[in-house]
Simulated scan of single mutants.
Amino acid sequence: MTPAAKSNNNKKCSILILNGLLLSTSTYGLYRCTLVHLPDTLRAAGHKQFLTNISLFFTILYNISRIGGVLTNRSGSLDGCISTEVLLPIVLVVETIVTLVYWPLRLFFIGLIYQSRTVSDGTPVIKVALPIYVDMFLHLFPLIGLLIDYFKFKKVRFNKFSDLGALLSCLVLATSYKLWLNYLITDLTTQKFPYPFLDVREPIKSIIMYTLSLVGFGFYKLYKSLHPGVATGAGKNKDN
């Protein structure tokens, strides 16, 4: 076996281990999340309303796709497939937003991230239902793992999306989530939005969502500029 082939095999093993671990922790975290008893105001829309759960679902799809791509690889190249060129930038941006929003609010403004419950004496209380390690499975490990996969194992930076395409994609994602919530939450007299910071009137709600989408686009550009590799393909003349 040549040194190049050996190095490629070692890289494949590392990618499989990384994505296998992430697949395990993310799947377990998502499972534990679905066992949480939701307050009455959130029960009708269910667990599918939370951005954390939605992003984790697509991260799991990425992990499966990445593992499948490595196992079925014959050309020796581990880049250029749909998992690393389309799924990875999308889930990386969304997981960045989830982590960036969650931990500062979780640590300092928990009332903006968790809906309160009313106890028997009528006092509203906030209770975090998941242990810290599951919290990290949900809100930290996915981002760390995706960053390692991108910066360590992807030879070239993102290149399938032009700047305009990436920006429009971020705006479409924000719009899709907004429409999804509007579909799930139909009675504001008995239901609340999944996060208290979204329980505000329009246009403030939309401003929050689209501002976060612009932050996500900013991180996409940052990750792209920090990657040590060069862009290849159709997008490089526009962005590099």
Rank of each mutant, 00 (worst) to 15 (best):
L22H: 07
L22C: 12
L23R: 11
S24N: 08
S24R: 07
T25M: 05
S26G: 11
S26M: 07
S26I: 10
S26Q: 07
S26W: 00
T27L: 09
Y28V: 09
G29I: 01
L30A: 11
L30K: 03
L30D: 04
L30Y: 05
Y31M: 02
Y31R: 02
R32V: 00
R32T: 02
R32P: 00
R32S: 07
R32A: 05
C33L: 11
T34A: 02
T34G: 00
L35P: 00
V36S: 01
H37V: 10
H37M: 05
L38Q: 07
P39G: 04
P39H: 04
D40W: 08
D40C: 09
D40K: 15
T41P: 02
T41L: 10
T41F: 09
L42S: 08
R43Y: 15
A44F: 10
A44L: 13
A45N: 11
A45F: 10
G46L: 13
G46Q: 14
H47Y: 15
H47P: 14
K48P: 05
K48H: 10
Q49A: 15
Q49F: 09
Q49V: 10
Q49N: 10
F50E: 07
F50C: 07
L51Q: 07
L51W: 07
L51F: 14
L51A: 11
T52P: 00
N53C: 06
I54C: 01
S55L: 00
L56V: 07
L56I: 11
L56A: 03
F57W: 09
F57L: 15
F58G: 04
T59K: 01
T59Q: 04
L61T: 01
L61S: 02
Y62W: 01
Y62I: 00
Y62S: 01
N63T: 05
N63I: 00
N63H: 06
N63E: 05
N63Q: 09
I64T: 04
I64S: 03
S65H: 05
R66W: 03
R66G: 04
R66V: 06
I67D: 12
I67M: 15
I67P: 13
I67G: 12
G68D: 09
G68T: 08
G68R: 09
G69F: 06
V70Y: 05
L71D: 09
T72W: 12
T72K: 15
N73R: 12
N73W: 11
N73V: 11
N73L: 12
R74A: 15
R74S: 15
R74V: 15
S75N: 14
S75R: 12
S75G: 11
S75D: 15
S75W: 13
G76I: 04
